[in-house]
Amino acid sequence: MSTLLTPRVDIRRSADRFATKIAWLDSKHSFSFGHHYDQDNTHHGLLLVNNDDVVRPGTGFDTHPHRDMEIVTWVLQGSLVHQDSTGHSGIIYPGLAQRMTAGRGILHSEKNDSWRLEGEKHTDPVHFVQMWVVPDEARVTPGYEQLEIDAELLGGGLVPVASGMDKHDGEAAIRIRNRHAGLYAARLQPGGSVTLPDAPFVHLFVARGAVDLEGSGPLGTGDAVRFTATGGQRVTATEPAEILVWEMHATIAG
């Protein structure tokens, strides 16, 4: 596929993202989302949504539906309580990978109820990134999976978070229903670096901190880069940083 594509490195700055700011939510959208629509910014590869959300304590997303989507949630600060119509529930916190398969239809809610962890009320917001990729097939049975990978992140390298690719069998923390996509996370200390995958489509998101991208220069919190038909660049932290990287070997048709 990469031979049919024009190599490109497309840097998207944090301040240029769509924004939704209401009393309980501060959300930044890397792609068209909700009433924010740009026909030239609907996806990259298989990634449709990369929402950077901050939710006030005691509030959150009430029960709402999803269908035919693989949804991965990655918490940066605080804790998020998930409940869904299939009976699954869990508390998502930093270092814990979570995937929800919407399949033929699911209802779920997500709330900042972090005080449940300690038995007393806290005033901290919950900060998380939620990412959606399309599945290989529609109308599958809805599902849910979570797994802690905090220990693996201590190594400073790219750690598989969620993947459907064969190369991650037995390695990725959680499985998604797309054999062409995989998500990695890395926590980097200053001077630490990782090499990006080489794939037809790669998406780099700086969830927090600052890094230097080989050949392109500095990136800060909220910045993203969309790579087409290229990869292998080094990403080096210039201050403590956390990055999320999608490797994708297909794109959405049309």
Results as ranks from 00 to 15, higher is better:
residue 207 A to M: 11
residue 240 P to Y: 13
residue 178 N to V: 08
residue 232 G to L: 05
residue 136 D to M: 07
residue 181 A to V: 14
residue 151 A to W: 02
residue 21 K to N: 09
residue 35 H to Q: 12
residue 217 G to C: 08
residue 12 R to I: 00
residue 125 P to R: 11
residue 137 E to Y: 03
residue 148 E to A: 14
residue 174 I to R: 08
residue 193 S to Q: 14
residue 49 V to S: 08
residue 185 A to W: 01
residue 213 L to Q: 12
residue 102 A to Q: 08
residue 41 N to H: 07
residue 20 T to R: 08
residue 196 L to V: 07
residue 71 I to K: 10
residue 70 E to P: 07
residue 159 V to W: 05
residue 48 L to S: 13
residue 150 D to T: 15
residue 183 L to Q: 11
residue 57 P to Y: 03
residue 31 F to R: 01
residue 75 V to Y: 02
residue 60 G to L: 01
residue 228 T to I: 05
residue 68 D to Y: 03
residue 230 T to H: 09
residue 40 D to S: 08
residue 175 R to S: 15
residue 151 A to C: 06
residue 179 R to N: 13
residue 162 A to E: 13
residue 34 G to L: 06
residue 108 H to M: 01
residue 204 L to I: 01
residue 162 A to Y: 09
residue 189 Q to M: 13
residue 232 G to H: 09
residue 100 M to Q: 05
residue 207 A to P: 03
residue 145 E to G: 11
residue 169 D to Y: 09
residue 155 G to T: 08
residue 16 D to Q: 07
residue 125 P to W: 02
residue 85 S to K: 04
residue 207 A to K: 12
residue 152 E to S: 12
residue 56 R to V: 07
residue 107 L to I: 04
residue 153 L to T: 09
residue 211 V to I: 12
residue 142 P to L: 00
residue 98 Q to F: 01
residue 31 F to E: 02
residue 119 G to L: 04
residue 95 G to T: 06
residue 71 I to L: 10
residue 90 G to S: 04
residue 55 V to G: 06
residue 197 P to Y: 10
residue 254 G to I: 09
residue 199 A to G: 03
residue 26 D to A: 11
residue 196 L to D: 01
residue 62 D to M: 11
residue 254 G to V: 11
